[in-house]
């Protein structure tokens, strides 16, 4: 009896030690980021490393705002990512529902082509996309930032897998009761898909929030900068202000943490749900 208690205690101790180590590994970069945002640039590369908060918070913030206009950047990023999530979610949910629940000619072919398109490297599409946007005079607009990836194959795939698990008999009984196809979709199917919708939203939001390559070439003026592009301009050939950089990264992290915290419950159950099925 006693032996097994000791054993269990040791097991728990081992587990918690391991968890503590992982916790430190995952939390330390965030801590370091916050430390960096309150210290002058040269403190970030000093030895021994600076691990305490400094008094440069406001100065870094003001400098960063002077360099890239950070509130405008925050607005751009939130606006682009927010609008993108809403539209892309509508597009991918509708497409996924069709792929999952309707029989039509060429359904599987179209689906396979769409899945295969995930294998085209993003970089290969940049130049044709750039030429297209340039020809229509759409460079440097929110439209250019939001439109190109509205149909995001992975999001469609993810939603389709979830719709597949939805029982057909429920749809049939709804049809027998005289419900319109659209009503079935919005009133019966979607409400039970909240976890999947949350998971897809987080994917879409993260994708657009972190998107760098395309905004980098599509944006022409400072007024349109999103976070990744604005932060990249802080990099010089021989000089980078790490204080400003860390401040910028800290600010860029806040919204994504908020979004994740709000959707976290759904997100995890959504992931688990699809894993069990």
């Amino acid at each position: 009896m006693r032996q097994s208690t000791t054993k269990r205690f040791l097991g728990k101790l081992g587990m918690y030690t391991l968890l503590t180590i992982f916790l430190i590994i995952s939390v330390f970069p965030f801590y370091w980021m916050l430390v960096g945002s309150t210290n002058p640039s040269d403190k970030m590369i000093s030895s021994p490393p600076t691990l305490t908060f400094g008094g440069q918070f406001m100065e870094n913030l003001v400098n960063l705002n002077n360099t890239v206009g950070i509130w405008r950047v925050m607005f751009n990023s939130l606006f682009v990512a927010g609008l993108y999530v809403v539209i892309a979610l509508i597009v991918s949910t509708a497409a996924a529902y069709a792929f999952a629940k309707f029989q039509f000619k060429g359904r599987n072919t179209i689906f396979i082509i769409m899945i295969l398109s995930m294998m085209i490297p993003y970089q290969a599409t940049i130049i044709p996309l750039f030429q297209m946007m340039s020809a229509y005079g759409l460079l440097d607009t929110y439209f250019a930032l939001i439109a190109p990836q509205l149909c995001y194959p992975f999001a469609i795939f993810l939603m389709r897998q979830n719709f597949l698990a939805f029982p057909d008999s429920l749809l049939e009984s709804a049809r027998l009761d005289g419900a319109h196809e659209f009503k079935i979709f919005t009133k019966i199917v979607l409400p039970s898909m909240k976890p999947a919708l949350a998971a897809t939203s987080i994917f879409l939001f993260m994708y657009q929030w972190n998107n760098f390559m395309w905004p980098l070439v599509a944006i022409r003026t400072e007024e349109m900068y999103t976070f990744p592009v604005a932060l990249s301009t802080l990099n010089g050939v021989s000089y980078t202000d790490y204080g400003q950089m860390m401040m910028g990264i800290s600010l860029a992290t806040i919204p994504i943490i908020i979004v994740f915290l709000i959707l976290q419950k759904h997100f995890i159950s959504g992931m688990l749900g699809s894993a069990v099925k």
Partner: peptide
């Protein structure tokens, strides 16, 4: 909802395009 989004999207494409070409 869809048509509102379409309008919003169209509006933001028009709004900033005056300085679009560097």
């Amino acid at each position: 909802v869809l048509s509102t989004l379409a309008v919003v999207l169209a509006a933001c494409s028009g709004g900033e395009s005056s300085s679009s070409e560097g």
